[in-house]
Simulated assay, not measured.
Amino acid sequence: MRTTYRVLAWILALEVVVQAAAIAWALFGLSTWIQNGGVLDAAAMQAEPQFDGVVGFMVHGMNGTIIVPVVALLLLVVSFFAKLTRGVALAAALFLMVVAQVLLGMIAHAVPSLGMLHGALALAILVTAVMSARLTPAARTVDERTAAVV
């Protein structure tokens, strides 16, 4: 279970990187499209404009509302069986941060200034996920175990 805990925590950290990459791809693609004459207004939003990076919005949205919360929930469940010091506390904190992150992502469409908190919370999730992953050391090789005995 400790290995599962570690792997899920690293996956959660990686998911934050995927989220940042997806939204950056989408926004850079959108800005390039606009600089090349594209017009973004309500009609264009309903018509779903096509530009390099538009898929980044979909990846960011679906990944953030489905995959990231599932991984955080799995990490929380596994934390009870992994028996790691602070493991449950960190997993619970991550799950709560992910829930808040999803809510901020939804509410920020109506209150854009909350987008700053959404970005900052993503960094907190990344750091906490890495801390969680490092709670349990990676399995040692036979040579390392032998050296420790000598």
Results as ranks from 00 to 15, higher is better:
1 M>L: 14
2 R>E: 07
4 T>H: 13
5 Y>K: 14
5 Y>P: 01
5 Y>I: 07
6 R>A: 02
7 V>N: 13
8 L>Q: 05
13 A>D: 01
14 L>P: 04
16 V>Q: 08
16 V>E: 03
18 V>W: 01
20 A>V: 02
20 A>C: 00
21 A>M: 12
22 A>M: 03
22 A>T: 00
24 A>R: 07
25 W>G: 08
26 A>P: 02
26 A>I: 05
27 L>I: 02
29 G>Q: 05
29 G>K: 00
31 S>H: 11
32 T>Y: 14
32 T>W: 12
33 W>S: 06
33 W>H: 09
34 I>K: 11
35 Q>T: 12
35 Q>K: 14
35 Q>L: 13
37 G>P: 10
37 G>R: 06
40 L>S: 07
42 A>K: 14
43 A>C: 10
45 M>I: 15
45 M>G: 10
45 M>Q: 15
47 A>K: 00
50 Q>D: 15
52 D>S: 14
52 D>F: 11
52 D>H: 13
53 G>H: 04
53 G>Y: 07
55 V>R: 04
56 G>F: 00
57 F>A: 10
57 F>L: 13
58 M>L: 15
58 M>T: 15
59 V>R: 00
60 H>Y: 03
61 G>R: 11
61 G>V: 05
61 G>Q: 09
63 N>F: 08
66 I>F: 08
67 I>K: 04
67 I>T: 03
67 I>M: 07
69 P>R: 11
69 P>E: 01
71 V>I: 11
73 L>A: 07
74 L>M: 03
75 L>R: 03
75 L>C: 03
76 L>D: 00
76 L>M: 08
77 V>F: 04
81 F>C: 08
81 F>G: 09
84 L>T: 07
86 R>E: 07
88 V>D: 04
89 A>K: 15
89 A>D: 12
93 A>P: 00
93 A>W: 09
94 L>F: 12
95 F>S: 10
95 F>V: 09
95 F>E: 04
97 M>A: 13
97 M>H: 10
98 V>G: 01
98 V>T: 10
100 A>W: 03
100 A>C: 12
101 Q>K: 03
102 V>Q: 02
107 I>A: 08
108 A>K: 13
109 H>N: 15
110 A>C: 12
110 A>I: 12
111 V>D: 11
111 V>W: 06
111 V>I: 03
111 V>P: 03
113 S>L: 08
113 S>I: 08
113 S>F: 09
115 G>S: 10
116 M>Q: 14
116 M>K: 14
119 G>P: 06
121 L>M: 02
123 L>K: 07
124 A>V: 11
125 I>C: 06
127 V>K: 06
127 V>F: 10
128 T>C: 05
130 V>Q: 05
130 V>N: 05
131 M>G: 00
132 S>M: 12
134 R>Q: 10
138 A>H: 14
140 R>D: 01
140 R>S: 12
140 R>I: 14
141 T>D: 01
142 V>R: 00
144 E>P: 01
145 R>G: 04
147 A>H: 00
148 A>Y: 00
148 A>C: 04
149 V>W: 09
150 V>T: 14
150 V>K: 13
